[in-house]
Design a protein around this nucleic acid. Structure first.
Lengths: 341, 341
DNA sequence: TCAAAATTTTAACGCGCGTAAAGTTTTTAT
DNA sequence: ATAAAAACTTTACGCGCGTTAAAATTTTGA
């Protein structure tokens, strides 16, 4: 097995001219079946692959796709990233995964580095409130970008996410119908725009049903939601600020902390007999099934958000990086009934 | 703000020759302070950055570093990856993050793609038992590689991980000292080599203490550990296979499932009064603090494993990609006492 | 069978930058 | 002040591949 240095050498060994070989690597179907067979035969014998740096330097458009999420240590984003990655690979692209780790500075640096990678497109779930809007705006001008999960008004060629009203309306309706209307438990200054939409949806829904909204805001910032939910819940429970016997958490990670606090305080959560509190939430976090009790929650339409995101990006790429107008696609939630409410 | 096309143009605008500018980008300190200042001044005015593809094509060694983990949706790996990433950036490298998503095929494809990136080095946490040993062996010949977390005998220039005996010995000793010696709860055919070492450590430790080891193996494969632990625990609890009142889980994710099953079965877990079962585990998973009850577990020396891994890789790179001999570095665990045991 | 169409070959340039050699200028040290 | 050292400029080549134009070849279809 000889070591091949470059395409020239490989072309010679396969008995095909270099430009034709180059054409083959660009699109195997663009050459005659017989020459294609000869190339692929040589390919098996010699194990050659084009130098990606030379390729990318000369191609106007690379086959790279950037996937940027705000916080990869959150299993929700890890799962979505996995799906996006594999869809890109299946479509013949080379995805690169980045996490802003909750920091604006990092998000900017990632976008910066991404620019010099000349990606065919980027799937971006921005940090949200703490994103550097102008930096993202500049980025989107230069790189075909589809936003997902977290919307930033007007930025990117399209947005695909979940319909927060659908989430909250279902949980509020369910809790009200089967018990009491819930209080809403959230962070005081949530970084994610979805959180704000959920609060508004809660208020709207409560008013529509003729109840007074009751919002509990807990302190804390950053992405340690479980910790924040836990501390906040302990405070709320100890100071008896809870006016209802049912609580809707803004998201599952807060709920995980909330449930841990309830457990520590000896408060029985659930809809079974002997339970004094019901807790529901939003997202259907991968661990929501294993909380104690298991968490009733409104689930993202995971697959659809992810698949529509990549589809939209591919359309965008094929369309030359621009759409006539920016579209926003929202998928409804699916209520998952478990034991906590 | 003019758009700069290439280094030639930028050099002209900054009043410095291209070779000197090139030298600057390779190492800013290699040029005279005055010229450095002029370049950086121009850099602010014109926003130019070298084409990374052209750079990497010509440099003998790129500044890329590959980080490969077996399963990124596991917050443990997500956290470690975060640390590794940031250490690489701090050292002036460009890390790329990859997850094998639990699949051998993907792991191989990642290593394949990584080869053509000509990385300066790679930090690899292999899948373990289901890794394609020969593929990884070939890879390690061509690319300076440091293994972490999961050891594959003889592969890579070095291994950095945790001392599984330290984990298990501490938990077993603690549980024995404060109650009964534990049974050991694990998957029947664990993919991760650490799991096997933990079982052996458990057996050795029990024998040393003069007790008979008692191992509970539950069915299941893949990376859905919580699910496997949950199902397995339900089966064990229903069929009353548990012979002891204390259980040591092979890892935290299994324990999360185990605790959920206990909760559902109404079994009070903990060391407080009224509890009938104690559960401990290994890893100190990011969520271990929020289980119900919070999980007593042996914690990885996270920071040291991560920092030593990158340090070792940097040494390896500076050493030309080869070490005299392969070293294995193991860090001991730190017992974290919480409520479950 | 033979011209038209499709494909491949040959030859050559360009991409943006690393790098080396030789000559020039600036800095450092005596 | 002056020689030596250090840094810079000029010039030029190479990296591996994309791409193009013209010439040569193969395939297609009637």
């Amino acid at each position: 097995m000889t070591k091949i240095k470059n395409m020239e050498e490989f072309a010679a060994l396969s008995g095909i001219s270099r430009p034709t070989v180059s054409k083959y690597f660009h699109d195997p179907d663009s050459v005659r079946p017989t020459t294609r067979a000869r190339i692929e035969e040589a390919l098996e014998r010699f194990d050659y692959r084009p130098n990606i740096y030379a390729v990318n330097q000369n191609r106007k458009l690379t086959k790279n796709i950037g996937i940027v999420v705000p916080y990869l240590a959150d299993p929700f984003f890890a799962e979505i990233a996995r799906y996006l990655e594999q869809s890109c690979i299946a479509a013949g692209y080379r995805p690169s995964l980045f996490s802003a780790h909750g920091e604006q500075k990092l998000e900017n640096e990632i976008l910066d580095g991404l620019q010099s990678m000349k990606p065919a497109g980027v799937l971006l779930a921005p940090l949200g409130r703490i994103s550097d809007r102008s930096a993202i705006e500049k980025f989107c001008v230069n790189v075909p970008t589809v936003l997902f999960d977290s919307n930033l008004d007007g930025l990117g060629a399209a947005f695909i996410g979940s319909d927060n009203f659908s989430f909250v309306s279902q949980t509020v309706e369910y809790m009200t119908r089967t018990g009491e209307p819930p209080s809403f438990f959230e962070m005081r200054t949530p970084a994610n725009p979805n959180a704000n939409k959920r609060r508004k949806a809660y208020v709207a829904m409560m008013e529509r049903l003729g109840f007074e909204p009751h919002i509990i805001k807990v302190d804390g910032k950053g992405w340690a939601f479980e910790e924040i939910g836990h501390r906040g819940a302990l405070k709320v429970l100890e100071e008896r600020e809870l006016k209802t016997n049912s609580v809707l958490c803004s998201n599952d990670r807060l709920a995980i902390g909330f449930l841990a606090a309830c457990y520590e305080q000896g408060i029985r959560v659930g809809r079974k007999e002997g339970c004094t509190l019901r807790v529901a939430s939003n997202d259907d976090h991968p661990f929501a099934k294993f909380t104690c009790p298991s968490l009733t929650t409104a689930a993202h339409d995971y697959d659809n958000v992810a698949s529509r995101s990549v589809e939209t990006l591919f359309e965008l790429i094929e369309n030359g990086g621009k759409f006539e107008s920016r579209t926003e696609t929202l998928f409804p939630a699916r209520l998952v009934l478990r034991d906590s409410a």
